[in-house]
Each structure stands twice: as C-alpha cells, then as structure tokens.
Design a protein around this nucleic acid. Structure first.
Lengths: 230, 230
DNA sequence: CTACAGTATCTGGTACGCCATAATACGATT
DNA sequence: AATCGTATTATGGCGTACCAGATACTGTAG
C-alpha cells in the first residue's frame, strides 16, 4: 500500500461488505467456542442467525474452509474443523520457524524503536496477567508478534502466522491460563527482547523457538488430556 | 488423516463438486498465465466461459481471494492479484525457512527411503531439463519438495508452502528457464540430498536455504527488469 | 470544447426454486 | 417378527431472476 499520505483526507466509509462482517462474526463464533469442533454448520440456520442470505453464508463458509477452520464432509456439508494433536504440533513448529526468523531479523536490524515497541507490548502482557484479563493477554501477545514481524516488513509471514494461529486459538486460550504461564511466558518473551537489544540474532532466534516450544508442550498436554474424555 | 489402511477398499467415487472443478480451472488459468495479473475477472463473463452459474463463480472467486491469487477492489470487483517484488522476496524467504526446517528433519531421520525418494525426484528434474520440458521440471521440483515435507509428516507446512508457491508460479516458470539454472538448480538440490544422506541436519538446512536464495535472486532480477517496461 | 446528464456495466446482495443425496421412518411381505 | 423396499424429510449443490449502488462511458447542449 503506497501513497499513505495522499489519501489522508479520504472519507473513510464503512467499506466493509456484508460478507466480510458475516465472515468475522462466524470466525469469531468458531474461535471463541460458540460453535464447537465437530458442530454442523447448517446453511439455512446460519442465514437465520446472521440475518443474511444463503449466498453470503456460502461464501463465508468457503472462505473459512480455505482458512482451515471449517471442513466439508462430502454429501453432508460443513462442520467446524476438528483440531488433531499432530496438526497442532505442526502449527506450533511452523510458528517457531517463522517467529524465530523474524526475531533474528529484528536483532540484526539493531533499531531502538523495535525494542521500545516490543517492550511496550510486553508490558501490556504483564499488566493483563496481573489483572487476570486473559482476553487482553491474547491480544497483547498478538500485538507483540505483530510488531516483531511488521517492524522488519515481513507482512506476508505475519499473515501466515495469523492464518495458522486462528486454528489453534482455543488452545492458546487454554495454555495461557496454565499455572506458572503468567510468569514464564513473559519471561521467555523478555529473553527474546533482550537478545534483540544486544543484536544477538542467533540468541533471539533460539529464544523465540523456546517460547513456542513451551507453548506447544503445554498445548500437547492439554490436548492429550482432553482427547480420551471426549 | 489416520487409518490409511482401514479405508483401502473404499468405493472411491468422483465426489468432485462442480465448484471444485471450476476452482481448479480458474486457478490453473491464473497460474499459467491465461489470465494476466491485473486482469479483471468479470463474474458473468466467467459464468459464460466456465459454463456454470454465478453462485459457483462467486464462491470460486472468494476462495481464490483467500489464497491470495485474486484481489478485490472495492466497488470494482475482483482482479488477478499483482505480484510485487517485495512480496515475492518474502515468499521465497518463508519457503527457505520451511524447506530448511524440513530438510533438517529429513537429515535427522536418517532413513534410506527418504534419500531414495528424493533421488528419484531429482533424476526426474535432470531428465526434464535434458528434454527441455519445463512443465515437467516444475512438477518434478514440486514432487521433490513434497517428499521432503511428507516423509517427515509435515503436511501442514507443505500446505503453507504450496499456498505461497501458487502466488509466485509464473516467476518460477521464468527462473527455471534462466541460463545455467538447468545445471545449478539440480546441483544445489543434490547438495541437500547429500547432506541428508550423511545425516547432516545443519548442512541440509543451509543447502535448502541456498537453493531458494538462488531462486529468489533470479526472480528479483527477472521482476525488476520487467517492472519498468510495464 | 467543456460540462453535465443520462446510460450501460458491473458488483454486492437477496430471494426463490429445483434437483440429488442421505438418513430416517414407515409399512408391507414373507 | 425380521427384513426389505418405499416415502418423507433435511440439507447441500446449483441455477436464475431481480434490485440497489457505484463507476465508467457517451452523447448532447451550451
């Protein structure tokens, strides 16, 4: 997106199409558990609940399908995708590779602004943990990684990470609630920031890897504990 | 996908919906240049060309949009996504990170089957270059990386790489045609295989990085040479 | 030659209808 | 009574017609 200044006085109309609004609604409903994994998503029911036409609902379902949040059973229709434990581990692994890459780049850039921005997000996370506001923990964590990627202009990688993250979002909300995660999580993230501050690319890479590895381990424990019960 | 043996005798019906067929058609048309970047994709025209209804076309367009192959201009409609040079470099970088990761895992696995499978794909690439069959070069290269990922059960990462690869597909078809690429490309890939054979994870990682770095450099040269002319 | 109005084009969105398939319930036959 | 065939229902897949709003084009009047 070039020419940021040129369209500064643009009218800024809503611009969101009905479809995008519906998409966000349904995605959010899946992510925060209103629709449970395995639930059927009946088109005509969704039409009624969203107050939009079937065309829109279908397009939304297709979009979510390509995001991996919805699966389509042949001759049965769409359901909320099940998250299997192996896939979750793979997602964490990919995040590790990409976040490690971004952290290394940040360290090599040696820019005080990056460190400052990361510190700010990190402080937000600590505050949110202190206030026991788990939703805020999630958004601040996202913002931490968002700056990590965007400060070195890696918006594509950020998009990939985001795409993968929604698929494990309910896992994330479980892992952050784990005992001790409120201390260790921010600690690991501050190690990333420290390495970036001293320009230690390899160290930043390792620290980022460690952080997602810890999250992955917790997720695996949570998931394998839940699977037999289900 | 578990239980591979259980459904060995499944009837295997076509099961492809009209939408999926249309999706493949349009994606292929974009990837191999029938639709050029920036071309408008007029819904009703596509209906006529594909012989399907607007419902189907719209769902297909939404799907391709979420794949990044199609962009939607507000109040103007869908066009074939432009590939800007920075984005292409980012995509190559991500591929490097993920393919490097997969190569490292393959090396650490120390399995003769992996080496054999990779050798086979590599031989296919060499033959295709010899026969000057560039389409075959592309498919064999894909198959090389496909085995790299799937032999260590990294299907999610493979999916990500695939998703990104379609966006730079016309670049790929240009890079492989470059002078000397027919020699250096397979050479670099054989270095990956060699490292895997001797179980050298770090070496495999580096070799994979080198390979995409070379491709990225060529792509950048091709793209920056083309941009002013356009 | 310019300004303006009218028009064509196209997407976004909606409503409705038809068909195919799968599952279930029901009824008949042996 | 058990089994087999059939009707019903629910649902997705697909098509068509229609309208509103935005944009691009065009022709005409001044």
């Amino acid at each position: 997106m070039s020419g940021a200044l040129k369209d500064a006085i643009r009218v800024e109309r809503p611009a969101k199409t009905l479809r995008e609004l519906a998409l966000d609604k349904v995605r959010e409903a899946i992510v925060n558990g209103y629709f449970r994994p395995g639930d059927r998503l009946v088109e005509r029911d969704l039409c009624a609940q969203l107050g939009v036409s079937r065309t829109v609902v279908r397009e939304v379902l297709r979009h979510l399908e390509s995001e991996g949040l919805v699966a389509n059973l042949p001759n049965k229709g769409p359901i909320v995708a099940q998250l299997d434990i192996d896939e979750a581990k793979q997602i964490y692994e990919i995040r590790g590779a990409l976040e490690g890459m971004a952290a290394r780049l940040c360290a090599e850039r040696r820019s005080p602004e990056i460190v400052a921005a990361l510190e700010e997000s990190l402080a937000g996370i600590r505050n949110s943990y202190r206030d026991n506001d788990m939703a805020a923990v999630l958004t601040n964590t996202s913002s931490f990684y968002h700056t990590l990627f965007t400060m070195v202009d890696r918006n594509v990688a950020w998009g990939v990470v985001n795409l993968l993250t929604v698929r494990i979002n309910h896992l994330r909300s479980m892992t952050i609630k784990t005992e001790r995660r409120g201390i260790e999580g921010p600690l690991q993230m501050s190690k990333i920031v420290d390495a970036i501050r001293r320009g230690d690319g390899e160290g930043a890479y390792r620290a980022a890897l460690d952080h997602v590895a810890a999250a992955s381990a917790i997720a695996e424990a949570v998931l394998s504990a839940k699977k037999p019960a289900e």
